[in-house]
Amino acid sequence: MSNYLNILLYVQIGLSVICLYRIIIGPTIPDRMVGVDIFGILVVGICAIIAIQTERSYILDIGIAWIILSFIGTLTLAKYLTCKKLNE
């Protein structure tokens, strides 16, 4: 039971390492930004699994905060890609 949850946690961490591969190797700049976006969502999954494993509910708070900050970061990067100034 607990061992099975441990295995799932390690699989999720391994998936986020795969995203790091795309961030490092990616041939163009937008490829790396896709990697950053997906990495942010995967970390939220890690937070949720740890919240089950330790029975602490406040780890979910960290997850929601991570969603919000990752969203604002993605919008800023997308606005940078459209070659506009940030206050337009």
């Binding site: 919000i68 919008l75 206050n87």
Partner: peptide, 17 residues
Amino acid sequence: GVIVAGSFILVTLAYGG
């Protein structure tokens, strides 16, 4: 405080200066 500032930054990004 960082998250509260993030909401204002989001409005500035989406609607322009």
